[in-house]
Amino acid sequence: MNELIEQLKSAYAVLVVPARADTQAAAVPAVVQPTDPERRGCHLEVTVTPAVVVDAAQVANRFGFAIDTITGIDWPEAGQMEVVYDFFHPQHRLHLVVRTRVPRDAPALPTIQDVFPGANWHERETHDFFGIKFIGHPDLTPLLLPEDADYHPLRKDFTNVSRSSN
């Protein structure tokens, strides 16, 4: 078990967004943080940049994780939206969380549905509730909301939806 966590840590430690010469952006490594499962419910939290979520999902896939859920959290003060990917392991007591943050005014990040097809619905739902765009997702039409819904109710600035009582 602990061995597996160590392997995971080293697998995520190499997950670095390379430095880019054109924008002078420095290399961003993934932040891997073990957490206390008794207090928090997960064993390992990995914080990555949106560009490498697909690689992060691939690592989880390689280790035999199953997709638990994907969700968003709105942080208006920080001007960001957080996307949280949960993975559980069907064989071991191991829970993995991958977090990433996208700017709130144009939230977009790549889809992981090619790695985990089950992510398709979770991403659609996150798009429903938060308006976060998943680039490369085949179908982002509302899943839980009505087909013509143009509102994102779990954003903190959502107030109401005007509806003519038909």
Binding site: L145, Y151, P153, F158, T159, N160, V161, S165
Partner: peptide
Amino acid sequence: FPGQYAVVEGVDK
């Protein structure tokens, strides 16, 4: 509740 977005508040509507 104030701001609810989904439920029809009574089928008599």
